[in-house]
Simulated scan of single mutants.
Amino acid sequence: MAYARHQSFYLRDKWFSKGLRAVDSDSRFFFQENNFETIGLGKNMVESLKYWLLAFDVIEERNEEGQKGHYLTELGTTLYNNDRLLQKNETLAILHYHLVKNTKDLSTVFEWYFNRYKETTVSKLDLLNSFSTWVSQNESKEISENSLKRDIDCLIQFYTKTPNDNDPEDVIFCPFSKLSLMKSESSGEKSDTIKKMSPEVANLGINSLYYILLCHREFAEVELISVDEIIKGDFLWGKIFNLSRNKTIEALNVLTNHDKFPIQYVRTNNLDYIKVPKVSPMDFLKQELVKG
């Protein structure tokens, strides 16, 4: 598990595009001593940017001809070619999913909060205490309290740092605030109140929800997924987006009318399942992002 690799910086507006463009132009970009001058960010910000791109699964580090470099993944190439400025909420929702999925073991606090932590309303102090307790129970080594605090601070800013409507040149907001997954409220006391929010299906984009189902079908090697699992299962809609049963059914009903890959309801052992077509998540994404 990893903690505070983000250098205390949440992803800022335009960083995603800058990072993918830099890696696409030079696989050795993040190893260059003057990379911060080239991209126009501080040294720690560049390290943070590399962290976010790796955690999103849009770049990977590998050896080519005996030399380490960073390269766009298939997901990274698809997003770079179709929505590098993160203008579509469905792109943000897909990246949020990859961050929570934490396949590279880089984004522990995001996996914990969205996939494991069950409270929907909590004080910031209690949130930190709960995270610290969980880490102490699941780590073999001691983790600095400062690192855990930086993780919680970054998690909250990542989803709540909205644009300043009075400043059209505001560049320090986080684009992921557009997903409306979290709210931070000043309680008038020492600790703010943090709330998990349940966004509307339209705000997430139906294609991002379908992409997640296809990823699950491919990873679990199943054709049928129960509706209850979509609501309660790890790394599925109910947990990573806090979607209710009603909103889940609403989205599934839309997908039964998909023009190219409609899902089907199946009733088995008095339980409702959906049958997901055998299409790869990336093939689906390439078609739908281009179409969108």
Rank of each mutant, 00 (worst) to 15 (best):
S244M: 05
P281R: 04
Y211K: 04
S147G: 09
V135F: 09
Y3W: 10
F56K: 13
I194H: 02
N63H: 13
T256R: 01
D13C: 06
M182F: 01
G76E: 07
G40E: 07
E139L: 13
E60V: 14
L289S: 08
A202H: 11
N89H: 07
K291W: 07
V227N: 01
T162L: 08
I172M: 05
Y159N: 05
N44W: 10
K50P: 02
V100T: 12
L53G: 05
P168Q: 11
S280V: 07
G292R: 14
E221F: 04
K50F: 05
H216K: 12
D234N: 14
I225D: 01
K43S: 12
R28V: 07
L236I: 09
Q287S: 14
H70I: 08
M1T: 13
H258P: 08
V23F: 04
T256G: 03
D105H: 15
R21V: 06
C154L: 10
Q264C: 03
K196V: 00
N203M: 13
S25V: 03
D57Q: 14
E169K: 13
V58D: 03
V122Y: 02
N129I: 05
S191W: 07
V201C: 04
K18T: 08
L99A: 05
I230V: 12
K196S: 04
V23L: 06
S187D: 03
Q264F: 04
N34V: 11
P199A: 10
K14R: 12
A55T: 08
G40A: 09
F241N: 03
E250Y: 14
E169N: 11
G205R: 02
N253Y: 08
G40T: 07
T120V: 04
S123L: 10
S130A: 15
T103L: 14
V201H: 02
I59H: 12
S186T: 04
G233C: 09
N82H: 14
G292S: 15
V171L: 10
A93D: 09
K232M: 03
G69P: 06
L85Y: 15
I94M: 09
N269I: 05
K260P: 07
V109Q: 07
N89D: 06
I263F: 01
L204Y: 02
E218L: 13
Q157V: 00
K195G: 00
S136K: 15
E111R: 15
G292P: 00
D192Y: 04
E74K: 11
A93Q: 08
G188H: 08
K260N: 14
Y210R: 02
D24A: 15
P168F: 13
S187Q: 03
L85N: 14
A22M: 04
K247T: 06
V23W: 02
I212L: 05
